[in-house]
Design a protein around this nucleic acid. Structure first.
Lengths: 248, 248
DNA sequence: CGGGATATTGAGTTAGTTCAACACAGGTGG
DNA sequence: CCACCTGTGTTGAACTAACTCAATATCCCG
């Protein structure tokens, strides 16, 4: 299910550091992060690593693997808020406000960097640059949510599917998961549907349409964008530029 | 349109401090906020105070008045991301990431506290408690967006309208705008529709239904919740508790 | 009192849903 | 190695929630 490792990879060998999108970290910042980190968590696919209504004592950075953040209604309807990829930061809401109001589930095996919440305050007092990074991360996910909200509220199914695929693809690319224009998508059409606010059937038909028009290819979990320009035009997609992102 | 006042109300007389939901601020924090604040901005209804794609040199706290945050698609479709009430903080995305990706428009005359972005870093280095507050605010708006996303993705029109009304009502209450169970709503049904991802006509019909069932009253801009319990049950509404919020 | 914005209502249309059947793939046990 | 089983994907048909169009009513302001 989920295994905690107290003696993990040291931060100076962090796999995320290699990625182009991350900002340079000063040695003393890295030292602090290392000190802040209590261990690593390894999670199996399908496991729930954060639960709505509960109260985690930890914060997490995703080192590898995919997951998704979601909420449910009492009768079981599920809305996926966003997919979680390497470099994403989890659990801030639980630490800042009183409790987590969403859940997170793993789609693949995941490795997470674990930070105890009670050391969070030292981060704010001793490392303003990292505190700034945390706010930066929060602002970034807010922006992503804004964009998703626009999609669910005002884009047609076709535009919506196109937009999500473009966005997931771009984020996967930033995490170095796109090889030779191809990514392995670890989620099902049901996950897509729940992220898009559509039914499974209609999601399927819409995907079919995108494939039929020669815009994408998605066969046995390998996904590829065939006609990037056409897809972007259809989705009214603006690639969000954010500058380089923090490591923590 | 918009007038900047350099010599405004001092922070120790801040109208927000009186509200129950705000946390106590230490005198030296208040001094810093005062120092951080460069003036006040008075905005007329209908004026756009932040524009998508632009780059504000300022951050704002809403002292009084209503507004809304929104995004548009190239063909004009508009999605209202959330309504803006006193105590809300604006412009963080513009300061953290490179540019604003949404706009903000005033619904009533608004008074905003203005903070220059270039002093933001001193806040992080000198006042970790306030830096923490900023992250707290970002986490809070993220939570609100999560909830909205669940609504747009998975709630029916009736549930959705009910949910939004409950939420706006609650936030208005926290800002001290609810008197005798009644609030003055400064927005039109078109605004509601754009916030809900529904058409104007359907929003109207749905409101009618809520009124007909005796759940709400909304006549010449005065809004009132008649049957709180029934409305909450219908909306599957969970009142989010956050503890006390920061002043900045 | 007139005019523009907002709200209301009915009628017809459609995008997306639900239901139901079937196809396909991979994984397991006999 | 095959038969089966379960989860996922695909497709058609019928249905409906929400949309668009269009006309009318009401409100507010100068």
């Amino acid at each position: 299910m989920a295994v905690f490792v107290a003696k993990p990879t040291p931060c100076h060998a962090c796999p995320l550091k290699a990625l182009a999108t991350f900002r340079d970290v000063a040695p003393e910042e890295l030292d602090f992060i290392q000190h802040f980190k209590s261990g690593e968590l390894m999670v199996d696919p399908g496991a729930t690593l954060l639960t709505e209504g509960s109260n985690t004592p930890n914060l997490y950075t995703v080192l590898s693997g995919w997951g998704f953040r979601y909420k449910t209604l009492p009768d079981g309807r599920r809305q996926i808020l966003n997919f979680v990829l390497p470099g994403d930061f989890l659990g801030l809401q639980g630490s800042m406000l009183d409790e987590m109001q969403h859940s997170v589930e793993a789609l693949t095996p995941m490795v997470l960097c674990v930070f105890p919440r009670d050391k969070l305050w030292t981060l704010y007092t001793n490392f303003p640059s990292l505190a700034f990074d945390l706010t930066w991360l929060a602002a970034r996910s807010e922006r992503i949510l804004d964009e998703t909200l626009l999609s669910l509220g005002r884009r047609s199914a076709l535009e919506r599917v196109a937009h999500l695929l473009l966005d997931v693809h771009r984020r996967a690319q930033q995490s170095g998961l796109v090889v030779n224009r191809k990514v392995r998508f670890p989620f099902t059409q049901q996950h897509l549907a729940d992220a898009l606010g559509l039914s499974l059937v209609h999601t399927n038909k819409t995907l079919k349409q995108l494939t039929g028009r020669g815009l994408i290819r998605w066969k046995s979990s390998v996904f590829e964008i065939v006609d990037d320009n056409a897809l972007q035009a259809l989705a009214k997609y603006d690639a969000p530029s954010t500058g380089s992102r923090p490591l923590i």
